[in-house]
Design a protein around this nucleic acid. Structure first.
Lengths: 240, 240
DNA sequence: GACAGACTAACGAACGATAGTTAGTTTCGG
DNA sequence: CCGAAACTAACTATCGTTCGTTAGTCTGTC
């Protein structure tokens, strides 16, 4: 490691690193790069973020970034892909051992929401697929599709268990997934509720949305509307 | 109007304009610029879109864009602001004359969702506030806050009418608003359901989320959880 | 009705700034 | 004392924007 400046000591010549951001807590330079890049990509978008900004945030020069990542695009891909994997794992872990469909939905949405709050920079970057180059895009989309398949299966099970209370599985799956992912669009630290509490609320919102109120259900029986939408990606297709 | 090339005739030297995009239907050059820019901003993001790309899409050169807009930023602002105004008007129109809170929620979410589908390019650009410069941002955010206040008031009314069935008004408002806005993230033309049908489904999802299922409500009475969250922006604050 | 002048909207060319990236060199830690 | 990882310096490409110009069109006056 060069330069007398140690990774642990901050605030001397490092212009960024406010101390509270996750970048300050990261140990290795590589981890700090990822953390800083995620925050900047989140705040400014990929294209509007420069390698020099990332470098300044980490406390090094732009050229030094290339000792850790071969390109800006690869940096974006690693953030997106690793986040997708991590989120998937967190959700599967939360659902482990839970068998009742409605409880599985709670576990899924709760864990997903919580992850999207706690890791909100990464999560938002991973949700923005537009800047990924074709090959990288394919890989991340495949990951995401597998992930959303889990949700669709839960809703299918709920539909079966409740004799068709879910009005349209495909649309509901998309709606619930986007709702939970976008929690990071409005969440801010220091608010009235913490991540856990919001995650619990979101889980209940999802259950309510999926099953509907009793009034809705009786109304639906009277006027049969859309079918259950089983076995389709959505009303449209996925994005490419 | 210069150049023998008339605005109405297309496809001679204009390299873009595939005929099906809204840009092809626009009459004036200014309208076509807005339509092309909205689609490109949506697909690639603001920073990744160049003035030369927009110009090519319209069928003119980059320099000519400045006869219609003083800057790229102003172009973004006009798209964002006008869309916000239009959407607000569409939703208020749909709610006109509807008094029952639950029906007002249906009207709000239905109209909002439908607009976000039909005008999905514009709507997604207007939802991306990160590229707006401070002054422009303030104006659009003010517009949006007024808009979301309407939703919060509806949920407050529902809460009163149902003796507290809405678990947390602030969180629910944010969740419903983001859910509906993000419908454009997955909708594609030619799918199983059209805009109207999806909008209706979303309205029901919102009602279900807001009121919850009967099972949820009895469960909530046993274990009093979060308060109703009245009079606050959310669990965090809004963005700035 | 004709014609001078203002206006609109297009063009090609170019400018300054800055982007991602590379090459070559220096500097410590193990 | 070797190599990982930092540095300085520079290259090339492209960006938003400006400039000077030109062709067509509207407007008002005689």
């Amino acid at each position: 490691m060069p330069r007398t400046k140690e990774t642990g000591r901050l605030g001397d010549e490092t212009p960024a690193l406010d101390g509270k951001s996750p970048a300050a807590l990261a140990v290795t330079t590589r981890e700090r790069i990822v953390a800083v890049a995620a925050e900047l990509f989140h705040r400014q978008g990929y294209s509007a973020t420069t390698m020099r900004q990332i470098a300044t945030g980490v406390g090094i020069k732009a050229a030094s970034l290339y000792n850790h990542f071969p390109s800006k695009q690869e940096l974006l891909f690693r953030i997106s892909y690793d986040t997708m994997v991590e989120m998937h794992a967190a959700v599967l872990d939360a659902m482990a051992g839970v068998v009742e469909p409605e409880e599985r939905l709670r576990a899924f949405v709760g864990a997903h929401t919580k992850y999207c709050i706690v890791e909100r920079y990464r999560a938002r970057v991973a949700d923005e697929l537009r800047d990924l180059e074709p090959d990288n895009l394919r890989e991340v989309v495949a990951m995401r599709d597998r992930y959303e398949g889990v949700l669709r299966r839960i809703l299918d099970d709920m539909n079966e268990a409740t004799d068709g209370a879910v009005r349209d599985v495909a649309v509901t799956a998309n709606a619930v997934a986007t709702m939970a992912s976008q929690v990071s669009a409005w969440y801010r630290d220091g608010g009235r509720l913490g991540p856990e509490e919001i995650a619990d609320l979101y889980a209940e919102l999802a259950v309510g949305a999926a099953l509907g109120s009793r009034a809705q259900r009786t109304r639906a029986e009277r006027t049969p509307a859309a079918l259950s939408g089983k076995g389709e990606t959505g009303a449209g297709s996925a994005d490419g």
